[in-house]
């Protein structure tokens, strides 16, 4: 899969689609115009780019998503950790927590998550 990173503005556009999909191109154009101030051609350019990335599809004048929001976030995080931390989640966490201490609640959440994962592995 190609690099899924989206810029801030592309993300807002994607959010517009995720919130209302499936959506016709006409509606999307109007929406983009209203929310972002884009022309039709601009909207189509960005849409095509996102479709090439594998996020959305355009069929018969309707835009659908190929992966949900959550899937996107997950794949993106994967890519980030792969490229910046050699695929090592602990490395990522170490880097992350170097500047930001984890709160009590977050530690609890993490523990629960790890326990759940371990259960999954044992099974």
């Amino acid at each position: 899969m190609s690099d899924l990173t989206m810029g801030l503005i592309e993300t807002r556009f994607a959010e517009l689609i995720w919130a209302r999909e499936p959506i016709s191109t006409g509606e999307l154009t109007a929406l983009a115009q209203r929310e972002l101030g884009w022309k039709r051609s601009t909207m189509y350019t960005v849409l095509r780019r996102l479709c090439d990335k594998g996020l959305f599809t355009l069929e018969e004048g309707t835009v659908r998503s190929r992966m949900s929001r959550e899937t996107y976030e997950a794949v993106k995080s994967e890519q980030l950790i792969d490229s910046s931390f050699g695929g090592s989640v602990p490395a990522f966490l170490a880097a992350f927590t170097r500047r930001r201490k984890l709160t009590e609640a977050e530690v609890k959440e993490l523990r629960a998550l790890i326990d759940g994962l371990e259960e999954g592995r044992k099974k």
């Binding site: 801030l8 503005i9 993300t11 807002r12 959010e15 929310e35 972002l36 101030g37 884009w38 022309k39 051609s41 601009t42 350019t45 960005v46």
Partner: peptide, 16 residues
């Protein structure tokens, strides 16, 4: 072309 005014970001609050 794809640029958007700053105001749009500010108005809608933090991104998710």
């Amino acid at each position: 072309r794809e640029a958007i005014p700053l105001e749009t970001i500010r108005m809608s609050g933090k991104a998710h």
